[in-house]
């Protein structure tokens, strides 16, 4: 198949960027989207042009490194799919494909399609954990957890921290990301002691990092490659309000 790419090129955070048109002829439909970009890069280098920079690593949909807004949609057109698991058979020969970085004030561009998502790490650092140190823990089966609770916790814990929710949100809110971690720990007894403080501190950190407020329009859920539910945002809001009332 033959494609025309319009790719965001930006040398670094300081210089302005623009969309560049790049022809991508003879693309095999069985390629993944990133393999298509690999091939385009090989060809650019052969013409002595600098390759397009994009984040990627595991290429099996779990590390959360790959990003890209493809034709206006974070991670592209397939639901529940990261960019690395998107295949070219999803497109048609002759298509024009616009490829942009995940855009948010909290995600400054590093180069081309690579953005800095360390703001998400700093949210986790502010309280996205159970405060236990190594050693001295009770036997694992001394903490029985109803299967249902463990399953819900796992649904939330499946978040890969890619930031697509932020890129999709018109307010660039990180509420789905924050609520996923909060819910993972709130649904199991290990997370209970710090539940309210955790909600409070993670939301505060999210605000500090210049993420916006939730729009309640669920664009985040629509693009989430792990299909994490916005119900968790409702739960986080409840915990957050309770934390405020309790003065935690």
């Amino acid at each position: 198949m033959n494609l025309v790419l319009k790719v965001w090129r930006q040398r670094n955070a300081e210089e302005p960027g623009q969309l560049e048109t790049i022809e991508a002829p003879s693309i095999n439909p069985d390629m993944s989207f990133l393999e298509m970009l690999d091939v385009v890069n090989e060809r650019l280098v052969a013409e002595n042009k600098e390759p397009i920079a994009y984040d990627h690593d595991c290429r099996e949909g779990i590390c959360g490194a790959c990003s890209l807004v493809i034709n206006g949609v974070a991670h592209g057109p397939d639901r529940g799919t990261t960019t690395c698991q998107l295949h070219m058979r999803r497109f048609h020969s002759g298509d024009e494909i616009v490829i942009e970085p995940f855009r948010a004030r909290a995600f400054p561009v590093i180069r081309d399609l690579v953005v800095d998502r360390s703001s998400l790490d700093r949210i986790i650092q502010s309280g996205g954990y159970v405060s236990v140190s190594t050693g001295g823990t009770p036997d694992a089966n001394e903490i029985p957890i109803p299967k249902r609770a463990a399953d819900v916790a796992m649904d939330a814990a499946a978040c890969i921290g890619c930031g697509a929710c932020v890129a999709a949100c018109k307010n660039a809110s990180a509420m789905l990301f924050v609520s996923a971690k909060a819910a993972h720990l709130a649904h199991i007894p290990q997370g209970a002691p710090e539940r309210l403080e955790r909600a409070r501190s993670m939301v505060a950190r999210m605000d500090e990092e210049t993420f916006g407020a939730c729009t309640n329009t669920s664009d985040c859920e629509a693009v989430c490659p792990k299909e994490i539910s916005i119900e968790f945002i409702g739960e986080l809001n409840r915990d957050f309000r309770q934390a405020l009332l309790a003065g935690r």
């Binding site: 050693g135 903490i143 290990q190």
Partner: peptide
């Protein structure tokens, strides 16, 4: 034991 205490949802 350690992982369960951390909240790993096995």
């Amino acid at each position: 034991d350690q992982c369960v205490a951390q909240g790993v949802p096995f």
